[in-house]
Amino acid sequence: MSAVTSTTQSITLTIDDKAISCRSGETILQVARENNIDIPTLCYLEGLTVWGGCRLCMVEIAASPKLHAACATECTEGMTVRTTSPRLKQYRKMIVEMLFAERNHVCSVCVSNGHCELQNMATKLEIDHVRFPYRFPRMEVDNSHDYMRLDQNRCILCARCVRVCGEIEGAHTKDVKGRGVLSAIIHDLDEPWGDSQTCTGCGKCVNVCPTGALTHRGTAVGEMTKKTEFLPYLTLMREVKL
């Protein structure tokens, strides 16, 4: 993101009481992952531009009154980071609860049941109920494509599909329309997916989608597993470097 970092320097910092060294320009999230420190994320995907939308990766930095998104914050010399605390746990729980209240996540009838990042996140954060009023919106399912399907009911608006489509495949078929809770993923100028002139049918969006929102057609409950083998190569697949 930042303007050309001319020289890489070595930086030392502390994450969760562990002394760590890294290269300048690396984000807290990258360094934490390299050191097997788990920070929950939903919108981040290595190789795509940083989105900063899910806010699950918020961490505390000593001497800063604010919380910082680990995916979007570069490490600086002497930084002391805390990736978990009762407050952070509470916030993360609320965020995931809100996702369940926002749309219709009925796991028992979802093709991604058992293979879903949202579901796994809820389990990891020990969410046993949702305190917020449910919206129960009426949402469309776009079944117009020959072999892929978009079910808006399960979408969490992480924009991974939008980014992979624009940045890796170079098609920019997908984008977001609307504002606030009325935002939704669209194809081209809000046309049925099957009518899209720009979609190459590569299927990357299906495989980066964390939930059952983008799936292959013809899958029944719990049958949809995503192919994630190519994910480590996203950075290499980019034409425009990050």
Binding site: G53, C54, R55, V181, S183
Partner: peptide, 14 residues
């Protein structure tokens, strides 16, 4: 709300 981040998008609704 632009709808990009969850706390604002769903939080303001709730």
């Amino acid at each position: 709300s632009c709808g990009k981040c969850i706390p604002c998008r769903v939080g303001t609704y709730e």
